[in-house]
């Protein structure tokens, strides 16, 4: 941080001012002239929070994608299908047992198992053949999408939030001051906050796992030079299977999250595949902090876009991607 300040003093100042302005925007009641320009504060705060929670969901999907890519150079274009599959499995479990938390565990394990099968049957056979792997995953995603359409049909599914999480929570953020002098606070759905918290916990946990444990050390070494790692006697195929299972399981977990605060339907798989593509392109391939940054940027862009420029909100995210590509093709936080 200090080094960044030393190298880019002007940029640091700009960032500092922007952060202070943002904090002011969030915490203080807006003056009337401001409301005329930007609309009501409640809308702004809602877009901000929705954007960050959506970013949390995107992070869950994209981190698995970027982890698999970073270690194995596998572009798994069936990642969106794994997301949707996890969502459907979670729905079935939640419907059957009535337990929301159990559905997370089962979805994670089931999709991780699918990931293991994918890694052993498909990717291990075609190591180093990028294009073929990509094509095979496209084929797999078509097949899985049609199988899911066969089983679950074209209806919308939504996983019910449990009792103890439904309903809004009052946040200590002032949205407006009424003429009577009474202050109005922001109400926000509890479940979204819990999910955001979960995403942050998973992200931090993943960072700790990667940077503080032996397994993480193996994974990082594999990212840097996998031939050298296997030459030192590490059974790298086991590491590959574990990472693939974990990444796929995260996608399944994200499916349950997505099924809870959005809905599950055919077509969501490509939507989330594209979202994670854009997220990792913006953030930098193979970088977990990059995935987090990219996810928040894309989530915010989507939500603010849909509030302040409704027609082109989807295009806005792609515009961000194009800008990043034009000025920093390796992604914002990429090592290389």
């Amino acid at each position: 941080m200090i080094r960044f300040y030393e190298r880019h003093p002007i940029w640091s100042l700009v960032i500092l001012i922007a952060v202070i302005f943002l904090v002011w925007l969030v915490f203080s009641p807006w003056p009337p002239g401001f409301v005329d320009v930007f609309g009501r504060k409640k809308i702004f705060l809602n877009a901000l929070f929705n954007g960050i929670t959506l970013g949390g969901l995107y992070f869950l999907v994209a981190s698995g994608f970027t982890l698999i890519f970073g270690l194995m150079r596998n572009v798994n274009l069936a990642h969106g299908s794994l997301y949707l599959l996890g969502g459907y499995i979670g729905y079935e479990i939640a419907d059957w047992t009535g337990s929301w938390l159990l559905s997370f565990i089962i979805a994670f394990l089931a999709v991780a198992a699918v990931g293991v099968i994918l890694q052993v049957v498909v990717f291990r056979r075609m190591e180093g053949e990028d294009l073929r792997q990509t094509l095979v995953t496209i084929g797999i995603s078509i097949v899985i999408a049609d199988l899911m359409l066969w089983i679950w049909g074209g209806d919308f599914y939504q996983i019910l939030t449990p009792e103890w999480l439904s309903g809004p929570v009052m946040l200590p953020l002032v949205t407006a001051v009424k003429s009577s002098g009474e202050t109005v606070y922001l109400k926000y759905p509890t479940v979204r906050l819990v999910i955001l918290l979960g995403a942050v916990v998973i992200g931090v946990g993943m960072w700790l796992l990667l940077n503080r444990t032996r397994i993480g050390m193996l994974v990082r070494a594999g990212v840097d030079d996998r031939d050298m790692l296997s030459a030192t006697g590490v059974r790298i195929q086991l590491v590959f299977v574990a990472v693939f299972a974990f990444g796929a399981g995260l996608a399944g977990l994200a499916g349950v999250v997505g099924g809870t605060f959005q809905s599950l339907a055919p077509g969501e798989d490509t939507r989330f595949l594209l979202a994670s593509l854009v997220v990792v392109i913006v953030g930098g391939m193979g970088s977990i902090p990059g995935a987090a940054l990219g996810a928040v940027i894309i989530g915010l862009a989507e939500q603010f876009g849909s509030v302040y420029m409704p027609t082109y909100s989807v295009v806005l995210t792609f515009l961000i991607m194009v800008l990043v590509l034009a000025f920093r093709p390796q992604g914002l936080l990429s090592m290389r």
């Binding site: 094509l135 095979v136 496209i138 797999i140 078509i142 097949v143 049609d146 359409l149």
Partner: peptide
């Protein structure tokens, strides 16, 4: 669609 997907998979 399943048929197309499977055929594609087999060929690839």
């Amino acid at each position: 669609q399943l048929l197309i997907g499977l055929g594609f998979l087999l060929i690839v």
